[in-house]
């Protein structure tokens, strides 16, 4: 999955998020109304789409949407 598709699908997971809200350099924790629920949505999204289970520490190590995408790529089996 390319970064653009990753972003588009992730946006679809958040209720009422206008298309284009997330950009590669968006600090995803700064999105309006961010809460711990959003972290769970990200973990569920990555788990279901990539079969990779992120934990709290994994998320803490990322800041932007691009970081998140790169983390998933790193964790994908070779």
């Amino acid at each position: 999955m390319l970064l653009e598709e990753f972003i588009s699908k992730l946006e679809g997971e958040f209720d009422d998020m206008p298309k284009g809200t997330l950009q590669p350099d968006t600090d995803y924790r700064s999105i309006k109304g961010w809460s711990s629920m959003h972290a769970l949505i990200i973990i569920a999204f990555v788990d279901i789409n990539f079969n990779i289970t992120l934990n709290g520490s994994d998320l803490k190590a990322t800041k932007t949407v691009s970081d998140l995408y790169n983390l998933v790529q790193q964790k994908r089996p070779a």
Partner: peptide, 12 residues
């Protein structure tokens, strides 16, 4: 409760 870790634990 660390809800994020509990969630990950269950999925794993």
């Amino acid at each position: 409760m660390n809800g994020t870790n509990v969630f990950s634990f269950a999925l794993r």
